[in-house]
Design a binder for these strands. Structure first.
Lengths: 144, 144
DNA sequence: TTTGATACAGAGACGCAGTCTCAATAAGGA
DNA sequence: TCCTTATTGAGACTGCGTCTCTGTATCAAA
């Protein structure tokens, strides 16, 4: 996806920064995640590809990508942060039993954002909904 | 609020556990927070009241309270966990500029929960919505 | 009241995600 | 080529939260 790289480069240049090899490799690795991932996942993927990018640099690149709106940062499970590439807005059902994360979308979210915008004069940038509960599989299991 | 203490005690006894002095003091301190708080806030409050409760015990009590549904645990800012006492369901607008957290409610949330329940057979336990963006004050400031 | 089993507490070591520091390096413009 | 400045990597460091271990408090039964 060269378009994504270009978009990143444009942002960096605008900020007086550079698209280095490390930043490009990091973004390429991110683009290959189809779902959410952690910083550690990303580091491992880079290591597997024999791309030497330090932990500090990976964290720095993640920060820049979040700042330019290409990446979303969330706290799904506890403790560690999850990232996901911003294809489309969606939300998460997290099962308290097995930890599975189901992604979903719903048109009502747009209405909600609109309500927030008008009622609170709040300029919405991102929107993360996390619903915890018990998924179908775990629910069935506990009924046995 | 003796009713809250009673409720906690009932849960503990049911689990074969005890309502100790430390647990009671911790819950009392929690009840006096009108908004969300961190574990560290809670420890400080206990210290200020000259109640000696160790860090480990505070964390353990928080865990029990979350497990019994009296307390909600969230990740609002980054890194550290926030807790809030479960008076009513509400959600958060987090300002990316100044970090201010605005609490809000909206009837659409109930519809959303219902949709999730039916479409995904997902048994909703809790529901945390975090919308990040720029609050009115910061928005006005940057327009000057 | 004594005894025994068990939940509980405190202290501090520990683990881990993420940040910071700093010297060496690379990149782009003049 | 030279100069300026952004960037990197290595590893020390921070801070939140957990784990371990030993001593203590509580409850039930004798």
């Amino acid at each position: 996806m060269p378009g994504e790289i270009e978009r990143f480069k444009k942002y960096l240049v605008m900020k007086g920064c550079r698209l280095t090899t490390e930043r490009r490799l990091t973004l390429e690795a991110i683009l290959d995640f189809s779902e959410h991932f952690t910083a550690e996942d990303l580091l491992e993927r880079l290591r597997n590809r024999h791309h030497k990018v330090s932990r500090a640099s990976v964290y720095r690149t993640l920060e820049v990508l979040v700042a330019c709106g290409m990446l979303r940062k969330m706290g799904l499970g506890e403790n560690r942060a999850y990232y996901e590439y911003h294809w489309q807005t969606h939300h998460h059902l997290v099962c308290a039993e097995c930890g599975k994360v189901i992604e979903f979308t719903h048109p009502l979210f747009n209405e909600l954002e609109e309500a927030v915008r008008t009622v609170y004069s709040f300029d919405v940038a991102d929107h993360t909904q996390t619903i915890t509960g018990i998924c179908r599989a775990c629910s069935a299991k506990s009924n046995n």
